[in-house]
């Protein structure tokens, strides 16, 4: 991910044949195998679904919030959701919330903040 004027930008690809977008620098379109060109997405998007992981996962400290975010005119990406309070009260981001990409986490993961629930 790179930095944009309003927040983070995901550097991905768009298919020249079927217009499928992807958040990965893959050499061909995952939907049709067509040729792809560089495309940038973000920083804004909408939460498709969200959860809170409350179990230990190697290298992670629970609880932490994750969401699948549909970037505006872009692909669906998995992102951490910025913490919004004490760990004992953490809840999942509301589905449909508007979110904005922030700089990547220290672990290199996408991170979003909720800008409008």
């Amino acid at each position: 991910m790179s930095a944009g004027a309003d927040g983070g930008i995901v550097d991905g690809r768009r298919c020249r044949s079927c217009a499928e977008v992807s958040a990965f620098p893959w050499p061909a379109c995952p939907a049709c195998g067509g040729a792809v060109e560089p495309a940038s997405f973000g920083p804004f998007g909408k939460v498709w679904s969200a959860t809170v992981v409350r179990i230990p996962v190697p290298g992670r400290t629970p609880p932490y919030r994750l969401a699948y975010v549909d970037l505006d005119d872009g692909p669906r990406v998995l992102a951490h959701v910025q913490a919004d309070g004490a760990a004992e009260r953490v809840v999942a981001a509301s589905i449909g919330s508007r979110v904005r990409l922030l700089p990547d986490t220290d672990e290199g993961d996408l991170l979003v903040e909720v800008v409008e629930s």
Partner: peptide, 20 residues
Amino acid sequence: DPEGRSGLALPALYAMAAAR
């Protein structure tokens, strides 16, 4: 993959479907 790197354990992947 992002799912593994971001700590989306399998229960959390299914939790996304359940939440939706």
